[in-house]
Computed example of a mutant assay.
Amino acid sequence: MNIKKEVSVSKVAKDAEELYRGGFFCSEAVVSSIRSNFELDIPEEIIAMASGFPVGIGRSKCLCGAVSGGVMALGIFFGRTKQGDQKVEKNLELSKELHDWFKVANGKNALCCRILTREFDMGAGAHKEQCIHFTGLVAGKVAEIVIRELNLVNTDVLEYA
């Protein structure tokens, strides 16, 4: 798989937020932003695979859809396609890193959509804005992990060097 060698983490996050605002849900926006910013030569259908995860998996309000999309995106890079391939261990480690990081980063010590959104009316703008923010956070963190693990370049760092 071809991968772009220099990526802006802040652009990945911003694009994910804009994709959410434009009509994708959280999980779709994360996967789409990662796919496009890393210029992955994989079909668009990968985004469709993320379509069942929004609002805590099919609106069940369980696991945050942004995190689900982030785990899917990590799997694109680090997941396995053959039984017995031990690289699955790295993917599990990185997925747990994302999980643990988001639990702290969201300020609510949770990954359950029901808990993350309990103070909001699900139809209200404040709910959507929080989810847009979480989507950007997760997409950015996934980009950071991929850049770190594959020894790529975060162009944001170059801007401030």
Rank of each mutant, 00 (worst) to 15 (best):
L150F: 01
K96T: 13
A110W: 08
L98E: 09
F120C: 11
L63D: 06
R59T: 12
M72Y: 10
G65D: 09
I46H: 10
D121L: 12
F53C: 11
C131I: 11
T117F: 08
F134Y: 15
H133W: 09
C131Y: 12
L63H: 04
D100G: 04
L94S: 11
I145E: 03
A139P: 03
V88R: 14
D100M: 05
A50Y: 03
S51C: 12
S68T: 13
D41W: 11
V142N: 04
V142H: 05
I47T: 00
P54F: 02
W101A: 07
G84E: 04
A50L: 06
I147Y: 00
E44T: 03
G79F: 02
A143F: 02
C112R: 14
I76H: 00
H127V: 04
R114D: 14
H133N: 12
K87H: 13
I145T: 06
G58R: 09
L116F: 12
A139V: 01
V67C: 13
M49T: 11
D100V: 06
A110K: 10
Q83F: 07
A73W: 04
A105Y: 04
E144K: 14
T117Y: 11
P54M: 05
L150G: 00
G69R: 07
D41P: 03
P54H: 07
H133D: 12
E144G: 09
G58K: 10
V88K: 13
E39Y: 00
V104K: 15
T135F: 01
K103P: 06
R59S: 13
D121E: 15
A110P: 09
S60I: 06
H133K: 15
M122V: 10
K87M: 09
R114N: 10
S60K: 12
K82S: 13
N91K: 06
V67Q: 10
I46L: 13
E97S: 07
E93T: 12
H127T: 07
R59Q: 08
L150P: 00
V104L: 05
L63A: 12
I47D: 01
E149A: 01
N109V: 01
L150N: 01
K82I: 11
E44A: 12
E97W: 09
E149S: 00
Q83N: 06
E45L: 12
A66G: 10
G58S: 11
V146Y: 05
I46Y: 14
Q83C: 02
Q83E: 05
R148F: 06
N91V: 00
I147P: 02
I76T: 08
G65Q: 08
L92N: 15
A105S: 13
F102D: 12
G52H: 09
C131V: 13
A110Q: 10
G56F: 00
L152Y: 02
A50R: 03
N91R: 05
S51V: 09
S68C: 14
L150K: 09
E44V: 05
I42D: 08
N106L: 14
I76L: 10
K108M: 15
F120D: 13
M49G: 06
M122W: 15
R59W: 02
R80H: 02
K141L: 01
G70V: 00
S68I: 04
M49E: 05
N106T: 14
V146N: 01
